[in-house]
């Protein structure tokens, strides 16, 4: 059976919120070391990879590998009932036909429970090569979100080019063009945390990506910073790392060609 307790239900809520527009149903593969989800969007343009480590849970136990086929519309309904400060306990028996959620308030004075029917999903798993990308950009997730939101009004394709000094996000629309150039820097945000933009370039790179998907994948609530990994003619990786070693959420987006 699976039993996992997260200190903050909001962690799962944010993850589901971030992927629900891309995937409608997916398998959560649970084993001793944690929970993994791999799923493509219906058009096979992007791939979502979620890895939650058992160590990041307050309590975690999974004595036998179990696959939980989840409908995201149903999951969203359940998670909407959790307050942000609630803890979340997930439970499933070995049959894998139901998933049980318990939300508990911090003070322990309110407990709510939900039972969700699971489904059998015939998922195609792809093997993701461990690539050493030519460009790695680490930046504030709020900044990335702002760039995508601003530029999405101008066209359907985002061009990202990087050299050793800067990264340029550009769009050319029918009637206008827009661009934002970022250079490496270090600033202090409202919470007095250091937010930096770092650009590591092994080779100058120029990629074209779907604006619609980038806008969906730019999400400032998942983590304070986001990492973009780029290389000519291969899928771009947009990665969010969760605090306390809980894991990562990766979005792979296939490039646009001529």
């Amino acid at each position: 059976m699976l039993e996992g307790r997260l200190t903050h239900a909001s962690t799962l809520k944010k993850i589901v919120e971030a992927v629900k527009d891309v995937i409608s149903e997916a398998n959560f593969d649970c084993n001793d070391s944690g929970i993994t989800l791999q799923c493509m969007d219906s058009g096979h343009v992007a791939l979502v990879l979620l890895q939650l480590n058992s160590d990041g849970f307050e309590d975690y136990r999974c004595d036998r590998n179990i696959t939980l086929g989840i409908n995201f519309a149903a999951l969203t309904k359940v998670l909407k009932c959790a307050a942000n400060d609630d803890s979340l306990t997930l439970k499933a028996d070995d049959s894998g036909d139901r998933l049980n959620f318990v939300f508990e308030s911090q003070k322990g004075d309110r407990v709510s429970e939900f039972d969700m029917k699971l489904m059998t999903i015939d998922a195609e798993l792809l093997s993701i090569p461990d690539n050493d990308y030519d460009v790695t950009i680490k930046m504030s997730s709020a900044e990335f979100s702002r760039i995508c939101k601003d530029l999405a009004n101008f066209g359907e394709t985002m061009n990202i080019s990087a050299d050793k000094e800067s990264v340029r996000f550009g769009v050319e629309g029918d009637v206008s063009a827009a661009s934002v150039v970022l250079r490496p820097n270090e600033t202090i945000d409202e919470d007095e945390k250091i937010v930096s933009t770092s650009i590591m370039v092994k080779k100058e790179t120029n990629v074209n990506l779907s604006m619609k998907f980038l806008k969906t994948f730019a999400n400032s609530s998942l983590a304070g910073s986001v990492t973009l990994e780029l290389q000519d003619d291969i899928p771009c990786l947009i990665k969010y790392v969760f605090p306390n070693d809980l894991g990562v959420l990766c979005f792979y987006l296939a490039p646009k060609g001529d």
């Binding site: 291969i234 987006l253 060609g257």
Partner: peptide, 14 residues
């Protein structure tokens, strides 16, 4: 317009 490629042309089935 640019042609959108598929993720499956880069990542092969397991």
């Amino acid at each position: 317009t640019k042609r959108q490629s598929s993720i499956k042309s880069f990542f092969k089935p397991k």
